[in-house]
């Protein structure tokens, strides 16, 4: 089983981190992973994206042509990547920043005002954790416990408050994803 995912959004929305946590957790769970970021000037302010592949087989190409999962945190990301989602795949849309939504009707849509929810939880910094929660809730790609352990390992001592907010965001995301 192979899952190919693209996360995209404005630079600063933490899309690279979404992919990184997914890859890190999947690796911990014994699967093959690759994480391939867009890099260069577009990383600041422009559209950043990252391709993450999780597979039971050795990963050939880390480049994703047709994602199984698209996380689109802004409208340009929907416009750029939604047309290539595999039929029956998943699109996670941040409706706070995607006024035009996604026109495709052959994919599973999870739409939520993610930026607003993140703000409710306490910070735009948890937007990426919310997205990870939704991915977990919708696809079961990784386990919640793995991410929790990961976050514990580097936030528990350093910033327990942020840890709490992150875990809240992930749990909230899981609820949204499971709806």
């Amino acid at each position: 089983m192979t899952t190919e995912m693209i996360c995209a959004g404005f630079g600063g929305q933490g899309v690279l981190t979404i992919g990184r946590f997914i890859a890190q957790a999947a690796m911990k769970e014994g699967r093959n992973v690759s994480w391939l970021p867009s890099y260069g000037p577009e990383m600041r302010g422009g559209t950043a994206n990252v391709s993450t592949v999780v597979s039971d087989e050795p990963i050939a190409s880390p480049i994703v042509s047709f994602p199984d999962v698209l996380v689109a945190l802004n409208q340009p990301s929907v416009d750029k990547f939604a047309p290539s989602i595999r039929k029956g795949g998943v699109i996670i849309i941040n409706t706070s920043m995607c006024p035009h939504g996604c026109k495709r009707d052959d994919v599973q849509k999870v739409a939520a005002p993610m930026s607003d929810i993140a703000q409710e939880i306490g910070s735009q910094m948890v937007l990426n954790m919310l997205a990870i929660g939704i991915i977990i809730g919708k696809t079961g790609l990784i386990k919640y416990e793995t991410i929790e352990e990961e976050l514990n390992s580097f936030l528990k001592e350093k910033n327990p408050d942020l840890l709490e907010k992150n875990l809240t965001a992930i749990k909230r995301g899981i609820e949204i994803g499971q709806k």
Partner: peptide
Amino acid sequence: DGMLGQMMEP
């Protein structure tokens, strides 16, 4: 190349 330099893998 830039891809191998920038990408993460286990």
